[in-house]
Design a binder for these strands. Structure first.
Length: 467
RNA sequence: GUGGUUUUAGCUCAGUUGGUUAGAGCGCCUGAUUGUGGUUCAGGAGGUCGUGGGUUCGAGCCCCAUAUUCCACCCCA
């Protein structure tokens, strides 16, 4: 067999032992906070049926779904079905469903909605679930953008209360602070406010075009936004009316006041403002800070599905896309036939958070995660001598290993060195005769004599002391 | 999907207008130390120059295609 060049698909990554320690630290920190707020973990399959996913993420999103080719003779099967249908010409639109019926998970929200509908008889509403799993997008990779990445989602379905939204603000604050981030902004907006604005200028059908354009304010400036609005069907007069909203500044309170003034004639818009106000009030009633919560009217992500609150989290310490986002869907499960169930949720982008923590050097030192004790291996006799001692240490909860072959001691100590193992127990003929083992401290280079029976006590004390 | 960029030893990277045998640092292996690492010293191995075509007497260098890296758009975690 020809040897092939080892490689992994574009936008995917291997994770080394060191990276996994750090990644698990992030996952564990976020998980702990989710649990603390009453969320329970579920998992869903890597693959979903293709029709479960298509049409849920907009045209752009559908293109980014990784499709799985049918197994078996997919081509013969496709032709067979095509004949039944009277042999129309193949097009990319008809060929796809004929050769692919499964796809990789694109996010965690849609599979969750599917889950809720499938298990509606087994769950109690409101249902609060969290999920930490990889998702896949056939995007072009770049900084902070991967084709396989992990999301940490928490959603609650079946509760209209804005208390949920407020708690999500707290969850963001708590989880990100626990991870050591100091300066981040939780941006919040409301779809109803955007609808209200579009309504006021008499172009409710252009709400998406409007928000996509004003979302770019900090990137292209007012002139750029104006240009884009004109291209998207707005008039100069519309833009004049939009200007005060686009250029909204000041504290959350003053932004809200200004919006109220603009939206007086829009019932929807005022409802959105009332929701926003209540969420902020809840947050402060929790005696939590609102200084890193920012009302941002230009925030428009996920507009295809969000109906109420919209969240986005950005770190201000390093340049990076958003590290989290979320919002409310009034009809989360409707697409799967269960009407009238509202849902709201948030997501943490673990891979981006990793990149941020890495750049800010915020990962904690944790030395105890490697092997604590290595038994040297001089020969078969010494190896046999070491095994009961090894078992004893492990039964005491001390992670230990024996070098698996009688290699030169130099090599064995080099192994301990590379793996940052703090102690090596040397067992040779001398030690076996006297029962006094040589314990080498790899940091200081010092060697102590320890009785074989005392060995576990010796390490229990030293490792407990955090060496 | 659009535009640009990267690829040379295990790793990070040099490599002149196209010209003999493609280099460095680190790592690795061996020895100084037949039971002592991390430091030091001496020596050694390791390269289809991303891949496939082309131009040329001659290509790491020029041309085309393709993959890959990173970046900016679109969009998004």
């Amino acid at each position: 067999m020809a040897t092939i060049k080892p490689a992994i698909p574009k936008g995917t990554r291997d994770f080394s032992p060191e990276e996994m320690v750090k990644r698990n630290y992030i996952f564990d920190t976020i998980r702990t906070v989710f649990k603390k707020y009453g969320y329970q973990e579920i998992q869903t399959p890597t693959m979903e049926n293709l029709d479960t996913l298509t049409g849920k993420y907009g045209d752009e999103g559908d293109k980014l779904i990784f499709k799985v080719l049918n197994s078996g003779d997919f081509w013969a099967e496709a032709e067979r079905r095509n004949q039944k249908a009277g042999n129309p010409e193949w097009s990319s639109k008809t060929l796809l469903p004929a050769v692919s019926e499964k796809a990789l998970r694109y996010d965690l929200t849609v599979p969750f909605a599917r889950y809720v509908v499938m298990h509606q008889n087994d769950i109690t509403l409101p249902f609060k679930r969290f999920q930490v799993q990889p998702v896949w997008r056939a995007d072009r990779p770049q900084k902070g953008r991967y084709r396989e990445f992990y999301q940490c989602d928490a959603d609650v379905v079946g509760s209209e209360s804005l208390l949920n939204e407020a708690e999500f603000v707290l969850i963001y604050q708590e989880a990100l602070s626990n991870l050591g981030l100091k300066d981040f902004t939780i941006k919040i907006n409301n779809r109803k406010i955007l609808s209200g604005i579009a309504e006021i200028i008499g172009k409710p059908e252009l709400i998406v075009d409007m928000t996509v354009a004003i979302d770019k304010l900090d990137k292209v400036g007012l002139n750029g936004v104006t240009k884009e609005l004109l291209e998207r069907g707005f008039t100069e007069a519309d833009i004049e009316r939009l200007k005060p909203v686009i250029l909204l500044e000041g504290t959350n309170g003053s932004k809200i006041d200004q919006l109220k003034a603009v939206l007086t004639s829009s019932e929807t818009g005022l409802k959105g403002i009332a929701e926003l106000e209540l969420i902020l009030e809840y947050v402060s009633l929790f005696e939590s800070q609102t200084s890193n919560v920012e009302v941002d009217i230009t925030l428009a992500r996920g507009l295809n599905y969000y109906t109420g609150a919209i969240f986005e989290v950005k770190t201000n310490e390093v340049p990076m896309g958003s590290i989290g986002g979320g919002g409310r869907y009034d009809d989360l499960t409707g697409m799967f036939g269960l009407k009238g169930l509202t849902g709201v949720g948030i997501s943490f982008g673990a891979d981006r958070i990793y990149d941020v923590l890495q750049e800010l050097d915020l990962f904690p030192e944790r030395t105890s995660l490697t092997t604590q004790v290595l038994f040297s291996n001089f020969d078969t006799e010494a190896e046999k001598f070491a095994l009961p001692l090894l078992r004893k240490l492990r039964s005491e909860g001390i992670s230990a290993e024996v070098y698996p072959s009688p290699a030169r001691l130099k090599k064995q100590l080099g192994y301990a060195d590379d793996k940052k193992i703090p102690y090596v127990v040397l067992i040779g003929s001398e030690e076996m005769q006297s029962g006094l083992l040589s314990v080498k401290n790899m940091k200081t280079g010092e060697q102590a004599k320890v009785r074989a029976e005392q060995l576990f006590m010796y390490f229990k004390q030293t490792t407990d002391a955090g060496v």
